[in-house]
Simulated scan of single mutants.
Amino acid sequence: MSASHDIVIALKIELKAAGITYAELARQLGLAESSVKRIFSRADMPLSRIDDVLRVLNIDFAELAQRIADSQPLLHQLTLAQESAVVADRKLLLIAISCLSHWTFDQIVATYTFTVAECQLHMAALDRLGIIELRPMNRYRLRLAKTFRWLPDGPVMAFFRQHVTADYFNAGFDDEGELLMLVHGQIGTSLANSFVERLQRLGQDFAQQHLADQRLPADKKRAYTLVVGMRSWLFAAFEDLKRQP
């Protein structure tokens, strides 16, 4: 769906919410009602006319744009086909992860060995997959919700288990701002979900701080990766020692 179509739909919603009919809008714009109906039916409106309608609604374009963004459905998970397409190309997966971290186009090109054209090509692929919405000047809007998760047993998590897990945990976790903690115990099953929710909020806090610190100079930031997990599990090395009921 085009951006102009989204704008016209949003204007229709705002007019209805304000109780302004096409007849009333036509009167305030100095147009015939038939002309107003024709403009909206085409779903293609020049910027000057959009400004006129916004003045009648007493809102500015930034407010309208925000309402359009807020109304767009965000994905909480990808389909198996979408994940398979992402993980099939290592470069595409890297750019997808960068977009999930809200990196700008310039940051991606400056950090990795992508040419501008190559990065544009991969971001266009992410747009077709519905993961981002490309915008002018190499900008984009992430179409994933804050609560987004890769499929637990999907292709991306399989890739991470095979290629990333051992590399991640093969460290002392003793540097500044690092921690590895393993806590084992038994708790009421009714409390397990509440712990999961608190861990999810921790992940969201980390993501929000990442966004807030984008304004910091490069020498004041450092890349960190937060891994959070909780499951009902017994060490495989001790499985044979467990007393069977």
Rank of each mutant, 00 (worst) to 15 (best):
A145H: 12
F148Y: 04
Q162H: 10
E178D: 05
F169C: 07
A166T: 15
W150N: 09
D167E: 15
A192L: 15
R149H: 13
V196Y: 07
E197K: 08
A158E: 12
Y168L: 08
S194H: 10
Y140C: 09
E176K: 00
G185L: 06
D174C: 04
V156D: 05
R139I: 06
Q162P: 00
E197I: 04
H163T: 11
D167N: 06
L151I: 14
Y140I: 10
D153Q: 13
V164E: 11
S194G: 05
M157R: 14
F148M: 02
L142G: 02
Y168G: 02
R143Q: 14
L179D: 11
D153E: 14
P152S: 09
Q200T: 12
R201D: 14
T165Q: 08
D167Y: 01
T189V: 10
P155V: 00
L151P: 05
T189F: 03
A192K: 14
N170E: 13
V156Y: 00
K146N: 15
Q186D: 08
V156F: 01
L182C: 08
M157W: 01
T189E: 15
V183T: 13
L182F: 03
R149V: 06
Q200C: 02
F169V: 13
M181E: 13
A192S: 14
L182M: 11
T189S: 13
K146F: 08
S194N: 13
R198F: 02
F148G: 04
V156H: 03
H184D: 12
F159T: 10
F169S: 08
M157G: 05
R141H: 09
Q186G: 04
F148H: 06
M181G: 03
